[in-house]
Amino acid sequence: MAISPEDIVPLSQAEARLTELADEVRAGHEKILTRNGEGYIALVDARRLDHYHRLEREHIHLTLLEEVDRGLDDIEAGRTMSVEELRAKYRR
């Protein structure tokens, strides 16, 4: 969803309008609160935030699985090192 100019609110106005802003966010209109004219924080529906966190965890798990797959490919191709070789390579 795109952010419209109405969704950008100075932090100084947010306190007086918090209930109104919360209702708008709950209805699907995320808000960007600004401080000194720059984006500062966002108001996001808690359910959407939970969804974002689940997506982030899924992304982390997929990235780890890709790393495991590359590691298994390295093993199959014989691209391995002994512990001693690793220690020597990364010793500083």
Rank of each mutant, 00 (worst) to 15 (best):
L49R: 14
L18Y: 04
A77Q: 14
E15P: 02
L21K: 00
A46W: 10
D50G: 13
P10F: 09
I8M: 04
V9C: 05
K31L: 01
D69F: 00
E30Q: 05
E84L: 09
Y52L: 12
T80V: 15
L64N: 13
A27D: 15
E24F: 01
G39N: 14
Q13V: 04
D73P: 03
I3D: 09
R54C: 08
L62F: 10
M1V: 09
A16Q: 15
R35F: 04
A14E: 07
L72K: 12
A14I: 05
I32V: 15
P5S: 13
D45A: 09
S12H: 10
G71T: 08
V83C: 05
L18N: 08
A14D: 07
R70W: 02
E56K: 11
E30D: 08
L11S: 08
D7C: 07
Y52R: 11
I3T: 14
D69L: 02
D73I: 09
S82F: 08
A27G: 14
I41D: 03
V83I: 13
V68N: 06
L65P: 01
H53Q: 15
Y40W: 15
R35S: 14
M1N: 08
E30Y: 00
P10R: 06
D73C: 10
I32D: 02
V68Q: 10
A16V: 07
I3S: 10
R26M: 14
R70N: 11
S82R: 10
L65G: 04
V9Y: 01
R26T: 14
E20M: 09
L64S: 08
L18F: 10
E66H: 04
A2W: 05
Y52V: 07
R57M: 09
V44K: 01
K89N: 06
E76S: 11
G71M: 08
Y90P: 07
E58R: 15
E58I: 11
E67C: 01
S82V: 07
I32P: 00
I32K: 02
R91T: 04
H59N: 12
D69H: 03
D45R: 02
E24W: 00
I3C: 07
R17H: 11
H51Q: 13
V44T: 05
L43M: 15
E38A: 12
N36V: 03
G71R: 03
N36G: 13
Y40P: 00
R57G: 01
I8D: 03
T80H: 04
L18Q: 12
E76D: 13
R92K: 12
I41H: 05
R91G: 05
T80P: 02
E15S: 14
A2S: 14
E6N: 10
T80F: 06
Q13R: 14
L64T: 04
N36I: 01
A42C: 04
R70D: 10
A22T: 14
E38S: 11
T80I: 15
A16D: 14
R47D: 15
Y40E: 03
M1Y: 07
E30A: 12
E76T: 11
S4Q: 13
E85F: 04
R91M: 07
R26V: 12
S82K: 11
A46H: 11
